[in-house]
């Protein structure tokens, strides 16, 4: 059987349709500018340093609806060595903001765990703002998989 040129083109179009179908039609995701603006607002324009804050997130999220994440900031939470707040952002969600934890002298430690939603594979960013205004950052890429079944 000889393939007409038309047949070949149609076959190719069919094959190309598959990756296209996997795009999320009609939805928009956070612009990088939104993420940058939120980080700047939170840090008062200060450039975040690495260190002090550890963000724990799974490498692969079994389901994007419920992804456990933890933050832990190395701080005595006493006197001048205090964490004011920790902000969590997701740079690939429709909107980047996730949660902001507020700590006090009564917190005992600047550590918290919660569960978040991730629309797709992306970076989760954790920013810690210390009482003295310094800002620290940690970032983890979380792969969000598409299950095979059960919708």
């Amino acid at each position: 059987m000889t393939l007409s040129r038309r047949r070949v083109l149609m076959l190719a179009a069919g094959a190309a349709a598959i990756p296209a179908l996997q795009l999320f039609p009609g939805s928009s995701f956070a612009a990088a500018e939104d993420v940058a603006k939120m980080m700047a607002d939170f840090s008062g324009g200060k450039e975040p340093q690495t260190g002090k804050i550890t963000l724990t997130a799974p490498e692969i999220a079994e389901n994007g609806n419920t992804v456990p994440i933890s933050v832990d900031v190395d701080s005595a939470m006493d006197g001048a060595d205090m964490v004011d707040a920790v902000m969590i952002l997701a740079d690939g969600n429709p909107r980047p903001e996730v949660a902001t934890f507020h700590f006090t002298a009564m917190s005992g430690s600047a550590a918290a765990t919660t569960r978040m939603r991730l629309a797709r594979t992306q970076n989760v960013i954790a920013l810690a703002r210390m009482a003295d205004g310094s800002v620290y950052m940690d970032k983890k890429e979380v792969k969000v998989t598409i299950g095979g079944c059960g919708g």
Binding site: R95, F101, A105
Partner: peptide, 20 residues
């Protein structure tokens, strides 16, 4: 301790934190 939640927090919000 307090938390400002945005819609990206999962259903049935769960928190773990410490207190002195």
């Amino acid at each position: 301790f307090s938390c400002d939640l945005d819609p990206a927090v999962s259903a049935n919000p769960y928190f773990e934190f410490s207190a002195r």
